[in-house]
Design a protein around this nucleic acid. Structure first.
Lengths: 203, 203
DNA sequence: CCTACCGATCGGTAGG
DNA sequence: CCTACCGATCGGTAGG
């Protein structure tokens, strides 16, 4: 959400173009979205776009970088409370799944990046993202005592994977009769993960 | 892999078109692939395609149905040996990860279906797939004694999710310095899953 | 199954 | 920032 008041007119127009492109690309993919559609949605003439971006791909690169899920997701995870790993994971999971429900575009953006751009921008993305990942890895690390011996980076990766696997299988199994789908599936996913990583209690 | 000798000429041409479209769509997406590219790769004139398919979308529907990862993956899982859940999971995981390495197109096909077709074909897909899923669910069910109390369908879903989460995070974290990536990450994923689902032993 | 074509739309630009 | 345009390419078809 841009704050028009703090931006110059040119910056506002630029942001409008990025927002328009983001919406369309998530709905139709990159190749399926035309510069004319973007210009219409942004409320200017086709030629006007080229005052702000040299070409179509440059718009996408801006979209993928500024709208990347990690920007919302990582701060969300960092802010999750919890004095033990178990509490933290439960809280973080609850927040994540709520956010994913609110933003179905998250996965689609990643798909477009992976298929239509073959992940070309991922290395650059990661430079921006990495400083935010580190404190999460360390948060697991500082609770080593509660955990089975697992490399903390793998732990973080499996933690991320928990959401990805839930969300992807949700999409993939969309065709399944609802009667077969147990309620609270996500809670079960969280329990499996917790049992998988937390050391057996001594008592 | 088609067997030309057992097909009529028309069927062979049709298959050639599907194969060509599959390759191109996985590389460039659906909207990014033109009918002319498909015709060139299949070795016939543009107009010739329309003797076999009414339009572009019909080709994709055939591609997604006949090349869907589940066709390779489910038989692979079913054939995995193992008298206990633990053995089965380890064997199945080994086979799956080898197959995923061999067929990077798997995930891309799913992405195209999900983004460019909004999962429209998934319900129909699932009708074809479901009979193959059932025996796998039952296989978990028949070893209930070894497992924590988890709905067998969720168990299957989490099992599928194990591969998806490993593979997706592998792609997503592609930008990361290799020095930070622990070796044998996949084995760790399998261990976390096993600890998550297998009941604590009595001894 | 090919040739030759259709109208529509594409990304991008010149010129103001 | 818009108007008017460029050549190229798109999905699809008629006619043989």
């Amino acid at each position: 959400m841009p704050q028009p008041s703090s931006l110059t007119k040119g910056e506002r127009t630029r942001q409008t173009i990025i927002d328009a492109a983001h919406t369309l690309i998530v709905e139709q993919g990159y190749a399926g979205t035309s510069m004319r559609q973007i210009s219409e949605r942004a409320g200017l003439a086709l030629g006007g776009i080229y005052n702000h971006f040299p070409n179509k791909e440059a718009i996408f690169v801006e979209v993928i970088i500024s709208k990347h899920p990690f920007h919302q997701v990582l701060p969300l995870l960092q802010a999750a409370p919890g004095d033990t790993v178990e509490e933290f994971v439960r809280n973080a999971a609850k927040r994540m799944i709520a956010e994913l429900g609110r933003r179905p575009d998250f996965i689609k953006l990643i798909f477009v990046e992976l298929v239509e751009f073959e992940g070309r921008d991922l290395p650059r993305m990661f430079q921006v993202i990495f400083p935010q990942v580190l404190p999460l890895v360390q948060r697991f690390q500082s609770h080593e005592g509660e955990l089975r011996p697992i490399d903390p980076f793998i732990l973080f990766r499996a933690f991320l994977g928990l959401f990805i696997s839930y969300y992807m299988t949700e999409l993939l199994l969309a065709g399944i009769p609802a009667a077969l789908k147990p309620e609270n599936s996500f809670d079960s996913f969280v329990e499996i993960f917790l049992h998988g990583v937390i050391a057996a209690k001594d008592n």
